[in-house]
């Protein structure tokens, strides 16, 4: 697999670079590979480059589904114990 994590853009520099942040960790990243990066965008960072913007609506929907699945799992385990 290719290791890549979502981070939030907190600064866009004129030279194609920018700052991205996750959990209080900021990294200088390169934003030249994505269309019109803006502060507040979530991007997928691989080897210091933003390779894709994250679709926030899709992410929220998926996260809600995961929460439901985790909830169902916990409930079924508690029932078993």
């Amino acid at each position: 697999m290719c290791l890549a994590i979502p981070m939030r853009v907190v600064a866009v520099h004129a030279d194609g670079g920018g700052l991205a942040e996750v959990d209080g960790v900021k990294r200088l990243v390169t934003l030249t590979l994505v269309e019109t990066p803006q502060v507040g965008d979530y991007v997928i960072i691989h080897a210091g480059f933003a390779i894709k913007k994250l679709d926030e609506d899709e992410a929220r929907e998926r996260l809600a589904l995961f929460r439901q699945m985790a909830q169902a799992w916990t409930t079924s385990r508690e029932g078993a114990e």
Binding site: C2, A4, G16, T30, T32, L33, H46, A47, G48, I51
Partner: peptide, 16 residues
């Protein structure tokens, strides 16, 4: 080395 994912940052660097 790598697949298309890693080609992206490598080519980004080469382009610069």
């Amino acid at each position: 080395i790598g697949f298309e994912t890693t080609a992206a940052p490598i080519i980004g660097m080469l382009d610069r």
